[in-house]
């Protein structure tokens, strides 16, 4: 297949990947942040200590996170059916990616929050700040730099997940590389996709590092 015909397909695949990745990062990122905050504030010794909430989230994260994504997509098929209405296609894949991303990010958020000096939280409590205010005006700002780096890490993980989308007819760059590169013995196509992905990752990592540096006042 000539590049004349491949380029429009590649552009379309790129668009599909961006669609999946951005929606996953948006929805999964917010959900993951909330789950991570939930883990942190409910853990023992924290200011909203609650062992039931902590154990539920903790066990859920531990169950979901280690499952290889390709198996996870299939395993949550019934749930995808119930929510999205179908088990295949780009929406179905994006749904599965969002769930996985949320649980992965929850752990990253929790780890970064744990490193906050508890004294700063105590100081905010001593000033009469409510738990909700502490979460949004102390926890998140104080951990912002590592959270940005964690989110950057998540982006790359999500890009990796999106390569599996082809199995459910979701399209995207991964699917394009398999279908038009690997199966057609077209080495150039594979290399082109790899180069595009490497460039995206480099750009995003650079952006993440820059923002994190700005957020870190040391």
């Amino acid at each position: 297949m000539s590049w004349d015909r491949l380029v429009p397909l590649l552009v379309e695949a790129f668009g599909q990947t961006m669609y999946m990745v951005l929606i996953t990062l948006g929805v999964g990122g917010v959900a993951g942040l909330l789950l991570g905050l939930g883990l942190y504030v409910s853990r023992q010794g924290s200011f909203l200590q609650n062992s039931v909430v902590f154990n539920v989230i903790n066990v859920a994260v531990n169950i979901v996170r280690p499952i290889p994504f390709i198996i996870f997509i299939v395993a949550i098929g019934p749930l995808t059916q119930a929510v999205v209405g179908r088990r295949i296609g780009i929406e179905a894949v994006t749904f599965a990616m969002t769930i996985m991303a949320a649980f992965v990010f929850a752990r990253l958020v929790e780890q970064n929050l744990v490193s906050i000096d508890p004294g700063v939280i105590e100081a905010a409590r001593a000033m009469g700040a409510s738990p909700l205010r502490i979460i949004f005006t102390v926890l998140i700002p104080e951990a912002l730099a590592p959270l940005i780096l964690g989110y950057t890490f998540l982006f790359i993980g999500v890009l990796d997940m999106s390569a599996m989308a082809g199995y459910l007819g979701g399209g995207g760059l991964g699917d394009f590389a398999i279908v038009y590169g690997y199966r057609q013995y077209n080495w150039e196509v594979t290399v082109a996709v790899v180069v595009i992905i490497v460039v995206i990752v480099q750009l995003v990592q650079w952006l993440g590092n820059t923002l994190a540096r700005k957020a870190l006042h040391r």
């Binding site: 000096d117 105590e122 104080e142 957020a215 006042h217």
Partner: peptide, 9 residues
């Protein structure tokens, strides 16, 4: 506080 506990951000 002993360690001041200021918000670094």
């Amino acid at each position: 506080f002993q360690q001041f506990n200021l918000m670094s951000s």
